[in-house]
Simulated scan of single mutants.
Amino acid sequence: MVEVTNISKVDKFTSEMEELGYESHGEYGIPNRRFFSKGGDNRTHHVHIFEHGNGEIDRHLAFRDYMIAHPEEALKYSQLKQTLAEKFPTNIAMYIEGKNDYIKVIDKKASKLRRTN
């Protein structure tokens, strides 16, 4: 994840990211984000770019920290993503929708954990 001072300036560097093998997805469902992925159907990397102060930054970091602290949840999430990838190999919208409820549950747990630390 990258944090910048002006999200609109990121768009000036899309071609450079593409030269590095990344595909640009724009906001991709999260306002004021720029999302890039690499590897096509066998994705190897993804980059989230947010403007400083965007609330999604804390949410993403809390999710990451929760998964690190709870490897059993990380395994469940990995298995869910694998199942969805097999079920929807060419339908990213359905893949994302399939993760949505699980992510919301983890977001609540992660937010609660972050407030207690």
Rank of each mutant, 00 (worst) to 15 (best):
G53A: 04
K12T: 02
R43N: 06
T14E: 15
L61H: 04
D41V: 13
V4L: 05
Q82Y: 12
D101W: 09
N32A: 13
S37V: 06
Q79C: 08
G55H: 13
E56M: 08
T14C: 15
S8M: 13
I7T: 07
N32M: 13
N32Y: 14
V105E: 08
H52I: 07
M1S: 11
K12Y: 09
G55L: 14
H60Y: 12
G21I: 10
H25L: 08
H48R: 00
A110K: 01
K81S: 00
V4G: 03
Q82P: 05
Y66S: 02
V105R: 13
R115H: 11
D65V: 00
D11H: 08
R59C: 07
I68G: 05
E56V: 00
P89Q: 07
Y22M: 10
Q82H: 07
N54Q: 05
T5E: 14
M67P: 00
G98L: 06
D107F: 10
A69W: 14
N32T: 07
H48E: 03
N6I: 07
S24G: 04
T116D: 11
Y28R: 06
A85N: 06
F88E: 01
Q82W: 12
T90W: 15
H45S: 12
I57M: 03
M1Q: 11
H48V: 00
E51A: 03
P71G: 04
E16F: 15
D41L: 15
S15N: 09
L84C: 10
D65Q: 01
E18C: 11
K112W: 10
I106A: 02
D107L: 12
H60R: 05
H45V: 09
H70F: 05
Y66L: 03
Q79K: 13
F50L: 02
Q79A: 09
I92P: 02
D65A: 01
K38H: 04
T83W: 14
V2W: 15
G40N: 07
M1W: 14
R64L: 02
T14F: 15
L113F: 09
M17F: 12
V10S: 13
H70C: 00
E72T: 01
L61N: 05
I96E: 14
E19D: 14
E56H: 06
L80I: 03
S15M: 10
D11Y: 08
M17P: 11
F63A: 01
N91G: 09
L80D: 00
D11W: 09
H25C: 04
F50D: 02
H70W: 02
H25W: 10
K76S: 00
I68W: 15
R33K: 08
F88A: 01
S24H: 06
I68Y: 14
T5K: 14
H45E: 12
V105S: 11
R59W: 06
E23I: 12
D41G: 11
H46E: 08
G55T: 05
H52R: 09
A110N: 02
E27L: 11
M67N: 00
P71T: 02
D11T: 01
H46Q: 06
E19V: 13
L113G: 03
I49P: 04
Q79Y: 11
L113S: 06
